[in-house]
Amino acid sequence: MLARPLRALLPALCLPACAPGFTVERHRLGPPRIAALGVIDGELQAALWSGLGLYHDEAPRLRWLVDGLLIGEGYGLRAPTAGLLRLEAEIDGVERVAELSLPEEPALLPLRVQREELRLGDRLAVEQRRAVEGAPVENGVSDDADARLVVEGAEGRGLRWMLAGPEGGVLELDATRADLLRHAVEYDDGAVSRGARGPAGVYTALVLAIDGAGSNRWRWVDVGMGAEGPLLRAGERLLPLDLEAPASRRLVVRFEIDDEAGLLGLRVGAATPLAEAEAGPDPLPCAPQGRPLRLDDLAEGRCTRADVDGQYVVLELE
């Protein structure tokens, strides 16, 4: 087999050559994929992107192997402390495989994300963007602004940024920050420019922190970009709900499938804060034992849209 070609030399002496562009790129989640894999709180976890949005219509089928031996299927498996982890996933009918070196002591990475508002204009080069300061915001930025996401708790880790959905663009800034645009990002021989502008609404990024040794952590981060209507913060996710910040960290909500609801794919039919002492409705069978549902459980396939459609569920706001 030939070594990887030294293809870089081709254009060096001004000779034209070209390859068609790809419709997938690493900063956009695109078709179904295993977007992240790690051991979190002693449990094997994976961020499974459905290719549809922040929901799954079919429950992913997961097979977990360590050093080639099957150790279990589905969600919620406890993580062995050593070996090569292999996940074979069927996501919306697509087979995907991922591997990870199991860490002996997974590091705790409580990632937090700060949103900032700024106006970059055409100043998209790295040095230009570094010169622009952002102002902290709670949930989102105004219609004509860009957003900056600042990650805390990822020291010593490398960050990877991926956008959900076909709109917008993400530009990394440094080891902890990235800028989120409603515009697509276009590259031309190193120069960056804005492409098509996406609609106003909630944009979602997946930020992954890796240390190269299997201690991975990730967060799904919603940002309102000129979004109309109130948004309720649930961890790093946003729900289109007109509620004052509830005293309780839990809500009882009723989800309904809504294909017009953007990446969320669900409409919130009703929402009521749940007092700490209240038990609320029975947990959904798909929800992890011992804790209420999170929106990320829908994004990563623990629960499908059908599992929550028409159901009153307790939603954890973190």
Binding site: R7, P16, A17, A19, P20, V24, R26
Partner: peptide, 22 residues
């Protein structure tokens, strides 16, 4: 065709073409 290149996740491939007229 000079060689094949792949997308970052190897789900797509394309052939890099050499200069056609020089």
């Amino acid at each position: 065709a000079m060689y094949t290149v792949y997308s970052y996740d190897y789900t797509q491939s394309a052939t890099v073409a050499g200069p056609g007229f020089v």
